[in-house]
Computed example of a mutant assay.
Amino acid sequence: MADSSTPAEIWRPHVTVACVVADGERYLMVEEAVHGQLAWNQPAGHLEDGETLADAALRETLEETGWTVELQHLIGVHQWRSTEHGDAVIRFSFAARAVSHDPQRPLDADIRRATWLTRAEIAALGERLRSPMILQSIDLWLAGRRLPLDALSHLPEGGAP
């Protein structure tokens, strides 16, 4: 038990967002450098302070792929302990529709490329997938999981209850 003069250590998982962007049977994926190794992921990243989950998903997708997308649904919220760094991760997965692409836009420094792959091609990447949440979110989307975006809410700082 913590001393009453010292605040207890508070557990803080990483809060991340990701987008399943489908084009027919293909999905937008990124190849990225992670600790000197190449790994595959959906457009994804961390929620920044003051940002809504939806805004984070839109920003990360644009920064990692050059694609502007429109969020359509929440697919799910996933809890996982990363094998990469050992910390807990809470991931909000969204379904999004590709709107436009800027091939001249510089991508985040760790991104090697963005490309479209089928589910079979993604599954074949095996250990090169950054997390099991990649296939899980695609499979939930394929199974028809469509949660309304308004299931998430954001209260602005200082907002009245």
Rank of each mutant, 00 (worst) to 15 (best):
A18P: 00
R81M: 12
M1D: 13
Q37V: 13
G24V: 04
H101I: 04
L152A: 03
A114Y: 10
G76Y: 05
A151L: 15
A39S: 12
H73K: 03
P13S: 12
R97G: 11
W116P: 05
T118K: 00
D108F: 11
E51N: 11
F92R: 01
A123Y: 09
L142Y: 05
G36Y: 10
G144E: 02
H46K: 08
L135G: 04
P13V: 05
W116E: 02
G159C: 08
I111C: 09
P148H: 05
G50A: 13
C19A: 13
I90L: 14
G24M: 02
P161D: 11
R145A: 12
G86M: 10
V77W: 02
H14A: 08
A39C: 01
Q136W: 08
S131I: 00
Q104A: 15
G159E: 13
R81G: 05
R119L: 03
L152H: 04
L149I: 07
A8D: 11
V89N: 07
A143Y: 06
A96D: 05
H35L: 13
Y27T: 05
L147T: 00
W80E: 06
P132L: 01
L147A: 04
W141P: 01
P132D: 06
H101V: 08
R119M: 00
W40R: 01
L140M: 10
T65P: 10
P7V: 00
F94V: 01
P132H: 11
A44N: 05
L152P: 00
A143T: 00
T83W: 14
A57N: 08
R145N: 05
D110G: 08
R81K: 13
S82T: 08
H85D: 15
G36H: 10
M133L: 13
A54E: 14
P106R: 09
R146Y: 01
H14R: 09
S131G: 12
R128F: 12
L74Y: 06
H35N: 14
P7S: 03
A2Q: 07
C19T: 13
T61M: 11
P7C: 01
L142H: 09
A18F: 01
A54W: 11
A2R: 12
A160P: 14
D150F: 10
D150S: 12
A44D: 01
S93L: 07
M29K: 02
A160D: 11
R128C: 06
S131Q: 03
A54K: 15
R130C: 07
R119T: 05
V20H: 01
L38N: 07
G144Q: 00
E84I: 15
V77M: 12
Q72R: 15
A123P: 06
P43F: 07
V99L: 15
L155Q: 08
A96M: 10
E64R: 09
R146L: 02
H101N: 11
